[in-house]
Design a protein around this nucleic acid. Structure first.
Lengths: 170, 170
DNA sequence: GTGATGTGCTTCGGATTCGAAGCAACTGAG
DNA sequence: CTCAGTTGCTTCGAATCCGAAGCACATCAC
């Protein structure tokens, strides 16, 4: 596992706090803009954006949930509300009866388009304004590595049994 | 991909997504650890940590809310639940009758101490593991600048910045 | 003083969130 | 084929969250 440590040093602490604070502040600001511009919550926007970004405009529920780091039940709820507003449709997959495919509608894309300019403006003003070109590149690189690492690191405890493969049986 | 006109470039988009994703993933992981180790939500931990970090162990409600980027009503709720568990106390300020001072108790500090090692372990494993010393320094620097900028940028949606200002000596 | 505002916190109502449990369809070993 | 275990999604209950409204104290003109 990990070697026990009494505490983080000042730099680590600074990075951690800055990460949490900056993302919180940004999220709040963005959320407000989205609410005003298109009556969307942040998750709803993320879902629409993810779908809009997909080549087919569709995703399975589970993949969508994993993509935006969201619980499945939470996604069910949001998919329902988006469906009520006709921003997405939900259809059964033909090859797997259990699976639901969520697809963005033209109206969904329209809302996305309405909201996007303001979204970008907020990002420019709040996140990018105080950063140089090279800062942004560096930031993207470092955070991408951290994200990728977290994505591939299994959640602590509650490990679902892997019967074989790389695991050595006790 | 993304729409051509009002879009961000790939690097900006990457930085933004990585920021949101990384912080979400980290927050989820930390939240789980805190729940298991000390039955604390992330906000509750943030509040205790903020108070514990304060020289007096106390803060005004409003300052506390601003510190952790949280709504006032939300803070009232959490302060109540923390008070029920005797992790903090709430007292009226003497100089301002309206003001409530929240103070961490010894028990609160104890919980904090219980939870801290695991918290750090998660950070080490998930956030810092894939990063070099210099990465962490750079990250801290860049994000601190972004955070400071956001902190000092108008928290209100008051004036839509893209509009022409009509504010001239009323 | 006195009223008009401003500030600090709580209450209220409604929306959102998650984990656990439930259901149905799939899969694999025998 | 058949049964046990998985997987995909939803439902359920309870916790958490926010904004708006409300209350009480403070402060500022005058």
């Amino acid at each position: 596992m990990t070697s026990p440590r009494p505490s983080l040093d000042a730099t680590q602490l600074g990075a951690y706090f800055a990460l949490i604070e900056a993302s919180s502040l940004l999220k709040h600001a963005v959320e407000q803009q989205l609410r005003e511009a298109g009556d969307l919550s942040y998750v709803q926007f993320q879902l629409l954006a993810t779908l809009g970004d997909s080549p087919t405009g569709s995703q399975r529920m589970t993949d969508l949930a994993d993509g935006v780091v969201y619980s499945r039940s939470g996604l069910t709820y949001q998919a329902q509300t988006l469906e009520k507003r006709d921003l997405v449709t939900r259809t059964q997959s033909s090859d797997d009866e259990r699976s639901t495919t969520v697809t963005i509608t033209d109206e969904g894309r329209a809302v996305l388009a309405t909201v996007f300019p303001g979204h970008i403006a907020v990002l420019d003003d709040l996140l990018f304004a105080p950063l140089s070109r090279s800062d942004i590149e560096t930031l993207a690189d470092i955070l991408a590595r951290a994200r990728d690492h977290m994505r591939r690191t299994p959640p602590r405890s509650a490990a679902p049994r892997r019967r074989r493969k790389t695991t050595q049986a006790p």
